[in-house]
């Protein structure tokens, strides 16, 4: 695994830790930095990272705290506190 991929993973953990401690702004900083590292190094972001961050405001999403998770017919809808909605399919 390259240095950049490891950086993204570390930043993911840091963002989660910061969000758990209630420091949303710092979590945002880590999320943005991870996105930037991925962009500069032409890497994709891990699936867990994509599903737990908001595309619009870069918040680290904690279901029940700053995100609502609803199951619809065949897909999940995650609503961030900023109003952004993300959808992804699920198989039952």
């Amino acid at each position: 695994m390259s240095v950049a991929a490891e950086r993204i993973e570390r930043l993911h953990e840091l963002a989660r830790a910061a969000a758990t401690e209630g420091d949303q702004e710092r979590a945002r900083y880590y999320v943005r930095l991870a996105r930037r590292v991925a962009e500069r190094n032409r890497l994709g972001l891990p699936r867990t990272f994509r599903r737990f961050t908001c595309d619009a405001c870069d918040a680290y999403l904690r279901p029940g705290r700053n995100a609502r998770v609803r199951l619809q017919d065949g897909h999940v809808v995650i609503t961030c506190d900023c109003g952004e909605q993300a959808r992804y399919p699920y198989d039952d």
């Binding site: 490891e6 570390r10 953990e13 840091l14």
Partner: peptide
């Protein structure tokens, strides 16, 4: 060796 290129946060 890789530290100057690696993540420093944390």
């Amino acid at each position: 060796e890789t530290l100057p290129r690696h993540e420093l946060n944390g």
